[in-house]
Design a protein around this nucleic acid. Sequence first.
DNA 1: GGTTTATGTTCTACGGCAATACAAACCCGA
DNA 2: TCGGGTTTGTATTGCCGTAGAACATAAACC
Lengths: 405, 405
Amino acid sequence: MTTIRPGASVARQASLRSGNLALVLRTVCAAGEPPSRADVAAATGTTRATAARLVDDLVAGGLLDEVEQAPSGRRGRPATPLAPGARVVALGLQADAGLLAARVLDLRGRVVAERVEPGDLRASDPGPTLARLGDLAAALLGELPGGARLAGAGLALPGIVDVEGGLLLRAPNLGWSDVRPAALLTPPLPVELVLGNEADLAARTVAETAPARPGPHRDFVYLSGQIGVGGATVMGGRVVSGSSGWAGEVGHVCVDPDGPACRCGSTGCLEQYAGRDALLAAAGLPRDAGPRELARRVADGDRAARAAVERAAWALGVALAGVLNVLDVPTVVLGGSLGELADLVRPRLEEDLARRVLSARWRRPRVVAAAGAPAAGATGAALRALDAVVAEPARWLAAAESPPP
Amino acid sequence: MTTIRPGASVARQASLRSGNLALVLRTVCAAGEPPSRADVAAATGTTRATAARLVDDLVAGGLLDEVEQAPSGRRGRPATPLAPGARVVALGLQADAGLLAARVLDLRGRVVAERVEPGDLRASDPGPTLARLGDLAAALLGELPGGARLAGAGLALPGIVDVEGGLLLRAPNLGWSDVRPAALLTPPLPVELVLGNEADLAARTVAETAPARPGPHRDFVYLSGQIGVGGATVMGGRVVSGSSGWAGEVGHVCVDPDGPACRCGSTGCLEQYAGRDALLAAAGLPRDAGPRELARRVADGDRAARAAVERAAWALGVALAGVLNVLDVPTVVLGGSLGELADLVRPRLEEDLARRVLSARWRRPRVVAAAGAPAAGATGAALRALDAVVAEPARWLAAAESPPP
DNA sequence: GGTTTATGTTCTACGGCAATACAAACCCGA
DNA sequence: TCGGGTTTGTATTGCCGTAGAACATAAACC
């Protein structure tokens, strides 16, 4: 007998149903206006009968809501508008060098509740810090409206993370190594806590404005300007996480091999030119100044500030040109403190990219700023948990059925 | 009525069948030894009855063959071994600066016929060159055994390609721009010719040793050392082609912004250090010398040759560290002339990567040489066409049914 | 108030896979 | 030589999900 690798499993009729449930739910989530069953049928290419059956199951499981119909003035039987289930929510957490954040989103992408607590967490102690974050989370979950069902929780961390193992391997800016946040988060959460890289999760908020609703860009490189520079790549609306989930470290792309030494052991990393600490130091500003102060000085004509920003733009051009040559994405999204400097670096950066990117003569790369909501990582963490539900509604329905309502 | 973006279409029962046909075919292709129907059932998780039904359809369509059973000595009814259909073949072509190649592969990954014609095609005229390639292809197709059915054809080109449009936008080493090869290839092929980047297609030969049979590496960066340096990224066994198919231009990652000017308009591109022309020039060798001559000189202790290789290894370290930081893949595969120099550059390159790649302390990147078959691009082009059949056997079966055998 | 129009529901038909039983082909041992 | 054991391949039945068509419903239009 030949032994064959397990491989994928066959598609049974249940898989068919499961896939179509996901398709219907995704369709409703992606729609701008609440669609009717007939709209869903048209968009998915199925019959009204089948679409209705799938919608009914999703409504029964709370994943879709039948919302109040506004008088449309159109003739024919009035439609029943459908919206993603408002009672399905997820918790997103973020611990960063500059803040602790907790945010609850519902399936429609609305912020149900949030707490953001600024503070300097550089070189902090993981235990007390995560206990504070746990308190924030508990307070948030306590004030949820009745009937809300928590679909999952995520934690965005500025470092290298072992997602399967639930382990933060190293977060240089926090000074943390080998931390298991789920164990330190008190009181414990009622659902599993999934870790994630801050930039990966923040990029998700650009890729989708609400669970399964596509954002303005589908293919882009995201740069998260923090104390260092984090990054993520999104292709086809999905974050490219690499074979171990450590992709996107654009901050450590080498810009100049003869450049300054970096904490990571290499030399001339992008972070040494465009990271917040590096920028502020080059501009002669104190470490706790913000990007706005830097932007103000540039506007005032401060020479050191101008030079620092110019140098950052140059470094971004070298590093991002390499990334764009390798990945072929049309857009660079600047987030975090880099987002606040986007207008200052864009002219030079776009020009450099046009010169250095091989395919620029056929499609010129663009640089945009992320719509800067604070603690985007927390939002992204909640989005990821909700996306998991949208991807496999059948699992959710099965879980919801075991305890009868 | 709300208009919703088309989105994906629902899964019908036909999709179920189509998906399972693909799964069965993929399973047989991936297996090392010809499996029986019962093996297929076990590997896919379905019943013997269903597996047999699917296999029968694939056998009827020629996508699977029932091969001769060798006496196994095991008790029980002897199994009927299954192998990918030998009569399903595809044509792969390649036009490169150093050769023209045509190769026919069957669904088992065997070379059915081939022609490789060396020659210097730098700054050549596309018309006559492609006519020569067309002659090669016609000769090859003429000598195919009776009953062979051509599933598709592909052409590997060292440049930027518009795959949908069938247009070669620019191939600097050939000196070609805006060429439409399908129109210049005489006599015309009996199937559609799909273009592809040479490095992308060569990388495919590393990702799979035969159609749908996984190769030794599933996640890697492939570097194709030609006159310049092409590249491709493979993640999860799939070539990452980017949003327009122009990904993988590792050769134009900036290694040193103050380095020599590159044809592409940038400065200090990797190609200026590790491309064949650059390497040979730095070693003081004539342009038409090969990488073996260079390797021989290094072994003989030639100082200029050693310095050239050392410099290339340094540049590869800087560029690939950036790529690995962004993509998180564990392996670098060196192909083409770089493959022949792999043993010379590996020590320094692996050391530099270990220092510069952020995740190296958890998983140290490895550098390997591609098993160097000449004209890997042609093989990859044929593989791609065969993979398309494996991915959608139902389409092939439908097409095979319309003209009855 | 009848007609038109669009939505939502009900019912039957068809196709695909699961489960089971059964037939076929080989090895083994008496 | 022949029956038991074993594995493979095939036939039959039942379940399930979608397609298709007919029907019911609720509004606007005339």
